[in-house]
Design a protein around this nucleic acid. Structure first.
Lengths: 122, 122
DNA sequence: AAGTTTCTACTACATGTGTAGTATTTAAAT
DNA sequence: ATTTAAATACTACACATGTAGTAGAAACTT
């Protein structure tokens, strides 16, 4: 329906973020223990991992009796696609509009502003 | 579960965007006819409007036999909350990280860059 | 007032999501 | 080789979402 191959749900995102952050293949158990702000049962983490595998966002290698999961999609790519999506959905595809909105909303810290200026060699 | 009072789904967003853009109360029929890139049946638009009303995102006044719908939540507020959400979910809450990512991804047009520079009074 | 038109309300149904429970398989231990 | 412990696979179920059909109500028409 969309231009995206697959959608990652909120809960699935928590899972793949763990895989991104840890940056080495992990068992479902490890993922479960590492997820932040969640009190998931083991099978919940496991279900989410399976769904991510179905969607092609995650894969695994077998090790002993368990699977070692790792992300297929890259964090940067995902972030960029989500960001592009937001810009096109809400800001008429204009990054400028987004920037203006953030600026006006006072969402930029002095540090942000400093860094952004630097980015533009100013 | 979230910090947000309600979630607006993808399809519902299309509806409320029409209300925002037109900027005057509209009947379900008008909304249906105005939605872009969609071939909805009247009842589909109508269902979505009802769900938005349930969620408190939209309200209506009665006019003749029909309802005139209008948005309760403001476009700017919604955009900002969505943007803040993205920044916190994917950019560690740092607008700077978002800006860097956009810049690196080549998502900023020369015009965007020009305008952003101007925004920083330079 | 009855018929016709046109709204809204209610119902439906498949698929996705959050969250797990139970069954089954398989590796490890003895 | 049998038992056991631990993983995965399969099943479940309520609520959200996309998409619409049908029933019922209200307002025009004549």
């Amino acid at each position: 329906m969309e231009n995206k191959a697959f959608e990652i749900s909120e809960a699935e995102l928590e899972v793949i973020k763990v895989l991104w952050k840890t940056d080495k293949p992990m068992t479902a158990q490890e993922v479960c223990d590492t997820v932040v702000n969640k009190e998931w049962k083991y099978t919940t983490a496991s279900t989410l991992l399976s769904r991510l595998v179905e969607k092609g966002a995650v894969a695994y290698d077998k090790k002993g009796k368990s699977y070692l999961y790792y992300p297929i999609i890259k964090k940067e790519d995902y972030k960029q696609s989500q960001t592009k999506n937001l810009v096109s959905k809400l800001y008429d595809g204009s990054v400028k509009n987004l920037a203006v909105s953030l600026f006006k909303a006072g969402e930029m810290s002095p540090d942000d502003i400093e860094e952004i200026k630097k980015m533009f060699h100013l």
